[in-house]
Design a protein around this nucleic acid. Structure first.
Lengths: 215, 215
DNA sequence: AAATGTGAAGTTGTTCACAGCT
DNA sequence: AGCTGTGAACAACTTCACATTT
């Protein structure tokens, strides 16, 4: 699918898969930076990221030319460019809805914070006593959701509610101004064109694996 | 990417994306079955699954012809065929390695069991007192991993260890006979060709979303 | 009449090979 | 000499249109 950007944005259309790989490159680059490496060739970075080098070069040229021929890419500069493009150079506030098993785990998942995302609040129909001391965020009742989202200009949400409730919740989110949803519910969500939904279905991933593993 | 199957298997190559969609179809079909619907057209099923109808028909014909022209598909028969192909018609034993936040959540995740997978054991370097009563599985020390996997003919594993340990653990898994790994660690794993790795990187999914949401 | 199955056309994404800088 | 940037070839996937079957 070609990436449709809204009219305001000057960005060229970048393939979905390229955007995904940019995240991977970013991680590899950060590791290089930590190791004090200043410059990297497309070949070396491609190996680290698990792709082929022409792929990497093509991915990068979708949004500009950063390399020096005969030399390679400047690690620091490339990190800046990619994280700027992805929007991870400034903190993105995120809300999480559905504090079940999975929701609770994601609330305390360090992987998000490390990459510049903060889950600033959680919502659930039942506001249970939080006896999990790893969870730092406040859990609010569902009625507060729309108000909170609009007031805090939240644009991204993580959805971990049961499948039956997912569509209803996402409607509220969209009305309140959310334009990006990471959906863990096994539900095909209906949203306006300008809203992006990333479906993450763990059961399907396992099932998929099962096919390749064989009978 | 075309799906490479090992020589033993007689299966025709089915595109990766098709295999993924088959799981989605399966869920929709199960819902139809629950509602007592016996027959479904490609058009109706496609809408439910969020794809176009020629796509669905092509997906199905990769592994046979099941429809009746002028009528549609038999729901029950199609469920049988797909779950047989995916290998979910009999229970697949799975082990989980790394009982941190995420690992613990996955252990108690009902989505897996519902789809025919059972996480039969978990492993970690530290076998902490399990005070989480939702987690039913035993947690063993890492030293027992290889032995357990070979003795129980386990072929699928869920990897939730820190990135530095991931490669080491996966080496052990492969040696012990695992051929399918669902990898939550942000590490590019090196495995033999006959082993399938499904990477699930939640931070990257969020980052990806962030791009579409805009600056 | 209705809906499948499929060759062919169209689209998107990947790889190659090499021209062009530094 | 080395490595990037890219047009062109290639491969994979999707959609279309319609012949075919019930």
């Amino acid at each position: 699918m070609p990436v449709k950007k809204n009219v305001k944005s000057q960005k060229v259309d970048i393939p979905r898969k390229t955007v995904y790989r940019l995240s991977i490159y970013l991680r590899c680059l950060q590791r290089l930076l930590e190791n004090g490496i200043k410059t990297v060739s497309s070949e070396a970075l491609a190996v680290a990221a698990g792709v082929k080098s022409p792929q990497l070069r093509k991915d990068l040229t979708y949004f500009g030319q950063f390399g020096t021929r005969g030399l390679g890419y400047d690690v620091d500069q490339l990190i800046q460019m990619i994280s700027n493009l992805l929007g991870t150079n400034h903190l993105q506030p995120v809300v999480l809805i559905g504090v079940g098993n999975l929701g609770r785990a994601l609330l305390s998942y360090r992987g998000f914070a490390k990459e510049g995302f903060g889950i600033i609040a959680a919502f659930d129909v039942v506001v249970k006593k939080q006896n999990d001391k790893r969870v730092k965020q406040d859990v609010y009742p569902m009625e507060k959701l729309k108000e909170f989202v609009s007031q805090n200009m939240v644009r991204m949400a993580i959805l971990c509610v049961p499948p039956e409730e997912a569509q209803e919740v996402v409607n509220d989110l969209v009305e309140a101004g959310v334009t990006g949803v990471m959906n863990f519910a096994p539900t095909v969500l209906q949203v306006p064109d300008e809203v992006t939904v990333n479906n993450v279905n763990l059961a399907i991933e396992l099932e998929n694996l099962s096919y390749f593993v064989g009978h």
